[in-house]
Amino acid sequence: MSNQEKPVQSDDFDIDLALEKALGAPAPKAPYVYDVKAAPNRQVVMPKTVPLPGLKAYLAEKAALEAAEEAKWQKQLADYEAAKAKAVAEGAPEPKAPVKVLPKKDPDLTVPVPSEAKDPDLLRLAELLGEGVEEAFEQAGELTCQVAKERLLEALRLCREDASLRYEMLADETATHYPAAKGFAFSVVYHLTSISRTKRLRLRVLIPEGFEPESAVQVYAGANWLEREIFDMFGIRFRNHPDMTRILCPEDWEAHPLRKEYPVVGWGQRDIDFREDRSGMLNRIALEKAGQLGINLKRPVAE
């Protein structure tokens, strides 16, 4: 709008125009700067963890936790033995023996944990792709197969065309941003459905910033809009995609909203000049000034 001419206002009721005439042109606006202190919810808290489910990570974490628990228990036992020996030497009553505290369990709560891949589909994929499969596991009744990012297209083709897999439909494709991770920045997941075998499989690739994975449109035509959405939300470009444009945000939108560094409030909010005019004073001044200029600013009221 700035380099265009301001449209000519033919009616006499425009308060802004009257104000400009009466008070002179307003001072040019400074660039908009977010005042984080005034609006703390605009501050972005970057995630510190990388919640990427996987069997290896889970087993390592579990072993570490168990070792810590065991060390704590051993220390408690040693403390007890020392206190007991001291009590016997002093003739004082014996201290209470320590009791192992079991974690509290809610009857209706069983947290699903990853387990080893036993499903024939995962084994078949591992057999076909060999080194291409980075990880395969089952969790919460779902099959996950993480493949190398260079062999993604091959994996998708196999899933669709292999006679013992036959995943005909791409149900969903989406991505997750992991800013705290080392070696990769995004995971892209493909949820495949086999209608004929009533099975589901999740393919996952980990990609670094700037990497362009092969587009799944070459295998599943339905990936078109899903990948456009991923591009729109995360800025991941797909190679050989027919139409890599934004889909939900406007074409000239800056940045990609579902990245973790994008604030929930603030960025992209319309820069609206809310004039503090609760008492109606600005309005009154405008009317007064307009009166001096001989302009009738009062809106006609229907009788």
Partner: peptide, 9 residues
């Protein structure tokens, strides 16, 4: 939650 990833149709 724990570290987990699900798709529920």
């Amino acid at each position: 939650s724990e570290v987990n990833e699900i798709y529920h149709p």
